[in-house]
Amino acid sequence: MREQLRPLNRWTILSTQVVLTILVLGLWELGGRAGWIDKLYFSRPSDIGMQVAEWVRLGYVVKDVVTTMSETLAGLAVGALVGIVLGIVLASNRFLGAVFEPLLVLLNSIPRITLVPLFILWFGFRFESKVASAIALVLFVVFFATYAGIKDVDPTLVASARVLGATRADVVRHVLVPSALTWIFSSLRSAVGFALIGAVVAEYFGANAGVGYRIQYSEANFNTAGVFAGLAVLMVLVTLVDAFIVRVQRHLIRWK
């Protein structure tokens, strides 16, 4: 007889994860103290923690997070909006789709990070160049997801809506967009990460605040703990934003 699959215990999973994390951080710390791991290059969890605490005390964390998040969210909002609208228009108009889709594929083949110097040339070291980098990364991800989501719609649903009296605009609103929503949301989750990459990388190039600036500044001063501390802050940020998006997604796609 086959063994019956018992449901996994949530607490067992969670405690295993906690133990694993402590184990890795503990080994890292121990290795650093014992001299097996070069502290100059790899720092130590305790130093990183102290660095974060120091930044909190100096008010840097709040200032940097606010700076980076406003760049990220502005880039995410504009990039996602343009991507969604472009996706809807190009997917629901066959002519425009045929003309522009290949061009967007072509543009998408440019590694977006290489555009950052161009944005700095255009906008200087200001807020705008960071937002532009975030947009450049987000737009394509969201566009292609929206486009694919709308192309993937069940043709029977469109035919049915038309017979029930839907105009073209009604079909877009009641059938195409809701149908693409699943795709759009999963793309938004990766888009958050991309927006942050865009903002942080642009900060590396030149800024006077932001998590990327803080990482770059630490690196320039051989402060490895500072680099890791910046990464830790980014990790927490993305996790929080992602959790928020998942909640909105659950609400909007509750029909599944």
Binding site: T156, L157, L164, T167, W255
Partner: peptide, 29 residues
């Protein structure tokens, strides 16, 4: 207008509940 169509495949909108699905043609009008 004035023609209805019942499809072989399921043609209800999965993101609308029963009430909103039945209401759909009236909302469109």
């Amino acid at each position: 207008d004035g023609v209805g169509f019942l499809f072989q495949r399921d043609a209800l909108l999965p993101w609308k509940n029963v009430f909103d699905n039945v209401a759909f043609p009236l909302v469109l009008r």
